[in-house]
């Protein structure tokens, strides 16, 4: 797919977001990935041009970060955390179930190009282990059966809600968000869930609170 003039303009705008254009390289690569479903050599060259670097320099960056893929990812990116916490708490079984369901191994697309399966690293959600991601949106506390069902529903085109985020769109849409974070979805879903509130609720139930501002300072504490 050729890079269009409007894409080139967008790349220039991303460059202009920063004091120096090269800083825009990462969002630029997210943008071309959102448009092409992967980071192609043409996409890299277009980013390089906008960032004012050589194609080799942009290639060096694109190949350093694991989220940039150099094969078609397909409609949905499916990640399963298999780092120690998630993996040992069941992520390994989730991954195996998905691998069997999708007929594909690590970091590869399914034959029909619908899904990409990847053993991913820690998602900063160990409290919600085992964690799976669909298009990088959280699907917390999954089981093998739940994970397979998510894939089934995605395949049937049904709406799947992230456990802490909006309804699943697709891989390209998430990549678009990474280039343009203001995607209008901040109010969607329930990003603050029970596990994030567990301590607060225990504190409230137990009448525990942070101490107030000690005298003689004026009571300017942020009120509740």
């Amino acid at each position: 797919m050729a890079i269009s003039e409007s894409t080139r303009e967008q790349l220039q705008q991303l460059a202009a977001r920063y004091p120096r254009p090269r800083s825009g390289l990462m969002p630029m690569l997210h943008l071309v990935q959102s448009l092409e479903g992967e980071v192609t050599p043409e996409g890299i060259t277009a980013c390089a041009d906008a960032a004012g670097v050589s194609a080799a320099e942009a290639t060096a960056v694109a190949s350093f970060y694991t989220m940039y893929k150099r094969r078609q990812v397909g409609q949905h990116h499916i990640g399963v955390c298999v780092n120690t916490m998630c993996g040992l708490l069941g992520g390994d079984a989730v991954y195996e179930a998905l691998s069997e369901r999708l007929g594909v191994g690590h970091d590869a697309p399914t034959d029909d190009g619908q899904f990409w399966l990847e053993r991913i690293e820690c998602q900063a959600a160990c409290t919600h282990a085992p964690v799976m991601t669909v298009d990088w949106e959280y699907m917390d506390d999954v089981t093998p059966a739940a994970a397979v069902e998510i894939v089934d529903r995605l395949e049937r085109g049904e709406t799947v809600l992230s456990t802490r985020g909006p309804a699943i769109r697709d891989f390209r849409a998430t990549e678009q968000t990474l280039a343009y974070p203001e995607d209008g979805l901040a109010a969607e879903g329930t990003p603050v869930d029970d596990k994030m509130l567990v301590g607060l609720r225990i504190a409230k139930e137990g009448g525990m609170a942070a101490p107030g501002v000690p005298a003689p300072s004026a009571p300017t504490g942020q009120e509740g």
């Binding site: 060259t45 194609a55 080799a56 290639t59 060096a60 190949s63 350093f64």
Partner: peptide, 24 residues
Amino acid sequence: GDPMIELLERGAKQQVGTAADEPF
């Protein structure tokens, strides 16, 4: 001033290389 070769990939896979279509 010809940054047409670069370190690509990372970690143990790190390797010198060029862009797909621009030799050194």
